[in-house]
Design a protein around this nucleic acid. Sequence first.
DNA 1: GTCTTTGCAAATGCTTTGCACGTCA
DNA 2: TGACGTGCAAAGCATTTGCAAAGAC
Lengths: 179, 179
Amino acid sequence: MQHYSESVEAIRAAGRRVTIQRVAVLDAIREMEGHVAVDQVAARVREKHPQMDLATVYRTAGLLGRLHLLNEVSIGGVSHYEYASPGQRHGHMVCEHCGSTIHASTTHLDQLREALLRDTGFELHLEHLTMSGLCRECRRDEEHSHSGHTHAQAQHHEHPRAGDAGIRRHAQSEGEGLL
Amino acid sequence: MQHYSESVEAIRAAGRRVTIQRVAVLDAIREMEGHVAVDQVAARVREKHPQMDLATVYRTAGLLGRLHLLNEVSIGGVSHYEYASPGQRHGHMVCEHCGSTIHASTTHLDQLREALLRDTGFELHLEHLTMSGLCRECRRDEEHSHSGHTHAQAQHHEHPRAGDAGIRRHAQSEGEGLL
DNA sequence: GTCTTTGCAAATGCTTTGCACGTCA
DNA sequence: TGACGTGCAAAGCATTTGCAAAGAC
């Protein structure tokens, strides 16, 4: 567990001043594994550094993102960050229904990336890619609801990895009559 | 230009009450062509109906989105809507640097959609897809900056279609030292 | 010692909500 | 008429910013 020095070096290598806050944020996000919202990062960091301000976490995560030490992923309009493991690029699939997030391998995406680059000149940044849709489980649920009655009271299932992250602004107002 | 009756029918067909506000929002977004932010929609709608409230536009656009008469696209954390022309599905590519948005044809995306569905069970919703990256022009700019000095004062060019939409939260803080 | 970063507090901007009144079917 | 939709005003929440104090090199 030589995490500490690893973060320190990464920040130093990026030509930035090494502060407890930066190291703490970088460590926290790496330890948490996966993409986490800023307030979650703050909560984690505060376990060890209670005085750390939310604004600092925002500024720090933003900076580390720009330095490519973190990936910034917007999920449902809320910023999430994940550790940018070199050589572990992937996109994200977010279920609109239950909010769970699945990684999308580059196998599928690189093809798209190259096609877009060739045909439109647009260089897709995989690290920020968030695709919304329905996960396998929710797709099953939807099918069931559609069969009989109109007022399908959708059953939200909780996925093991979903946690309470993301899914705040969106995924509201279910039970809207004909929908 | 039988737009009016078209919107009225669409709303009625969806089983909702037909109100001036709903028709106006739907018409406005269709006339504006492309994805527009909620406040832009409000501004447009107010030309003819000055009393219309922002909250109403939010509620209405949200409803029309759920009814699949509009597509909701989140750009830089801000909701945009576009008219959901049947049989005109596409994704969006948003340039992180200049904020311009380009449509991505389904030719590229359907392939991805099918691959994801097959391999992961995830059903990608193309209508909400926003991919960030760099457009052709900004890619050129970046290259130039990287050649010489470190403090590359990035030249923002204005794209014809960019307008003043989106690009509010992101695309900030340029000139950040080593970046 | 100087220039960068942080903590604090206040502001900002998008979006939602509660409620009384107006409107559609 | 009765349920639904709108206007208004206020709240909510994520995020940003100004500034003085604290810290890195």
